[in-house]
Design a binder for these strands. Structure first.
Lengths: 261, 261
DNA sequence: GTTCGACTCGTACAGCGTTCGATTCCACTC
DNA sequence: GAGTGGAATCGAACGCTGTACGAGTCGAAC
């Protein structure tokens, strides 16, 4: 019953002497392949070929493909820049963090399919989480609310970026730019929205604007709403408040676990 | 250059005489397989076997596996319930919509990997979008802001539900309930958070609460923030504003949702 | 009775992740 | 130098995948 959970991070890695093939090299090459040609392009055979090594040699350094992807994913987490909250406002930190994620996801579009469904316990992910939680601590959130704020921000950014990425994938595949594709797709969405005239009208508006700026605006819109909402909760929930020690949790936890033995 | 984009919804379906195998039957069976055993379990061979037909017979009714998934996905969109905004406040509609999505995703965990990256132009998706946009229109949003509000809400709900689903998948695989798994995973996260004591402290708090209720609280937290933020923007951006066509919105009808809490 | 389209399906192909066992290579002891 | 043992590489093979292709079946129209 113990330890069904397995992850690259729960096993210790094999020796790091100086083999002709190294884990870091494998991860880097896999990343190149993924960035250049997407998730489907990464096969162990192709990776081996690109490494100039035998396909199955990879399995000495990495248990299986899933673990390899965990490793590459954590590299991407490493690209999520989050400034030090002591140097600006928490809103600035959160906002710039959000934009940094967006940018990293654009650089590595394939992650969007993995990131939400893979537990983030690699070193870079932990570093990021730590700084994010610290940001909301500095902002004035207490207890689990720090976690809630962090996961809310992450959820929004990941959720809103996903369609952007699939849009970019479509433009790339069609060999058109955003506005051209938008124009080309007009009959499709028109037909789809045939039964909903007010929806069709809404879509028609997009013909008059630059699609990419509209998407950027969309991102900013939701981000602002979210931060506004967080700020409102901060002001509402926080009475002047005596400084709390981190070592006294449970204080504001209403619901204690009932199934506790 | 024209029409590289292809989707089930852009081709018209083949005749619907009364064949021994029908598209609806295929979609329904695929859904059963997906719900019961997840994305990996759906292979054309297994589907054919479950249908009691030849594997490749499916390809007469459906162009390929991707199109089949588009069809099943739209079925799930059909389960996203969104009440009529004329019967409550837009906040109630948005909130109950969010919870409905969450519930549907729990029933069909596999969609979370598809939904963000597949264009939503099926009939059920369009119907949902239409009602959602109408909701925000009724709330007072104008122009593209209606779209922005809709996509922001969707982004948050999908983004925040994804980790919940992967958590549920882990519990299912381990054969434990949430709290047991949380306990069992404690050494793992402790080790992962070793370098970040304040993060470890945060995680330790989760040992004192029921994990599932904590997640529910997390969902509600972010949802409230988001709706607060949307409302704030509404109040800010809207000058007194001449009475609009959708007048007399029973805004005072406070409907309590039973599925919540 | 013939023809024709709708529909079914067996076969085959190229590719996948991964297991297994043989093989090579190198740092070390004797 | 010879010998040894673990680290690392890798070729072959297994069972799976999606689907292209073409042959086959069936029922209705002429």
């Amino acid at each position: 019953m113990e330890q069904q959970f397995s992850s690259v991070w729960t096993r210790e890695r094999r020796t790091a002497k100086s083999p002709t093939l190294s884990r870091t090299q494998i991860v880097r090459t896999a990343m190149e392949l993924l960035d250049a040609e997407g998730l489907d392009a990464l096969s162990m055979r192709r990776l081996g070929a690109k490494l100039g090594s035998g396909t199955t040699s990879i399995y000495w350094h990495v248990a299986n493909k899933d673990e390899l992807l965990e490793l590459v994913l954590d590299e991407v987490y490493g690209e999520f820049d989050i400034p030090d909250v002591r140097e600006t406002t928490w809103r600035n930190v959160a906002s710039s963090f959000a934009y940094s994620i967006r940018q990293a996801l654009f650089a590595h579009p394939w992650v969007i399919s993995y990131i939400g469904t893979t537990p983030a316990i690699g070193p870079n992910a932990m570093r990021m989480m730590s700084r994010l939680v610290a940001t909301f601590d500095h902002a004035g959130f207490r207890g689990l609310d720090q976690d809630h704020a962090a996961s809310t921000l992450l959820a929004y950014v990941l959720g809103v970026t996903a369609p952007e990425i699939s849009w970019r994938a479509m433009t790339a595949k069609a060999g058109l730019d955003s506005n051209e594709l938008n124009e080309a797709l007009q009959p499709v969405v028109e037909k789809a929205a045939a039964d909903y005239p007010e929806l069709a009208a809404r879509y028609a508006e997009y013909r008059c604007v630059d699609v990419d700026s509209a998407r950027a605006l969309n991102f900013e819109f939701g981000l602002t709403c979210l931060l506004d909402g967080l700020e409102a909760r901060l002001n509402r929930a926080t009475p002047p408040l005596a400084p709390r020690s981190h070592s006294a949790p449970g204080a504001d936890i209403e619901e204690t676990r009932e199934s506790r033995r």
